[in-house]
Design a protein around this nucleic acid. Structure first.
Lengths: 153, 153
DNA sequence: AGTGAAAGGTATTGGGG
DNA sequence: CCCCAATACCTTTCACT
């Protein structure tokens, strides 16, 4: 599926605020509300639009700590890798899992209430695995930007 | 503002799918639609709910590359730091900006169409600044998880 | 705070160009 | 693939508990 200039405008606006009404989109883009509706439905069907989510302020709900972990494995065999990856993904405090190559193997980003919670998670996720060589913990002093927005040109 | 068990249930569901209707929330939580409505409005007013966004599949719109940069500064004077931070935040291809302390100063996560786009951005963001000591580029082979969801217990 | 019902807005679908 | 109009659905408000 090829996106035209209208689809890109729709996505750009929805990425900023998914609650914008299709009528408002319609007037901003100069396309009827029903055309907007059909395009959005098509993009959802194709998986271009993955979902719509509410963004919660982590500080205001008592989870102010963001931690980055760089994890190195002993053995990079695919099945072992997948097993660990699944475990990381399933952990609800883990917001991001990137599999990388180079000086380490996984970069994880955690959101936690406090350092104790993080320590508990490292025990669960890292120390119980035979395959983790080591990990480096980096505490974020400030989450200056945290978005999932994609550029559409 | 203190969140009770109903607010937390509402937020948990909205973080998964912000398009769930208040009526459906109402039946899942056993609270009337108008109570749901008032609670959501209050959490928006307080900034607990920051916004609602559509999540776009970066691969499907031709932006498959995620890159992590670890940036080290020469001088960590606050005004210089803020100037750089602002520049990073304003770059639309930069999804995340974390200010950290330790072996480096900023961790950035980019989403780009290809390596050429990233190289262009490093020239713009890093090489034009007098204050950047060095940076390390880590290419993500797989974005196994990428969410903003916060745990509410 | 919570509820139910009425009023006001939106999304969605179908007919026609 | 677009528009317009009708329907169906949802949110929001209000009077009352």
């Amino acid at each position: 599926m090829k996106l035209d200039v209208f689809d890109k405008k729709i996505l750009t606006l929805l990425q900023k605020d998914s609650r914008i009404s299709q009528r408002e989109l319609s007037s901003e883009i100069s396309l009827s509300a029903s055309a907007i509706n059909r395009r959005i439905a098509a993009m959802e069907r194709e998986g271009i639009i993955k979902n719509n989510v509410t963004v919660v302020d982590a500080h205001k709900v008592g989870r102010p700590i963001t931690i980055i972990s760089e994890v190195s494995l002993i053995n990079e065999r695919l099945d072992l890798l997948e097993k660990l990856k699944k475990r990381f993904i399933q952990c609800p405090q883990v917001q991001h899992v990137y599999y990388v190559t180079g000086d380490f193997d996984f970069l994880l980003i955690f959101n936690v209430r406090n350092m104790e919670e993080y320590e508990g998670l490292t025990r669960e996720l890292f120390f119980t695995s035979e395959n983790i060589k080591n990990f480096r913990t980096i505490v974020s002093m400030q989450n200056a930007k945290q978005e999932l927005t994609v550029v559409l040109d």
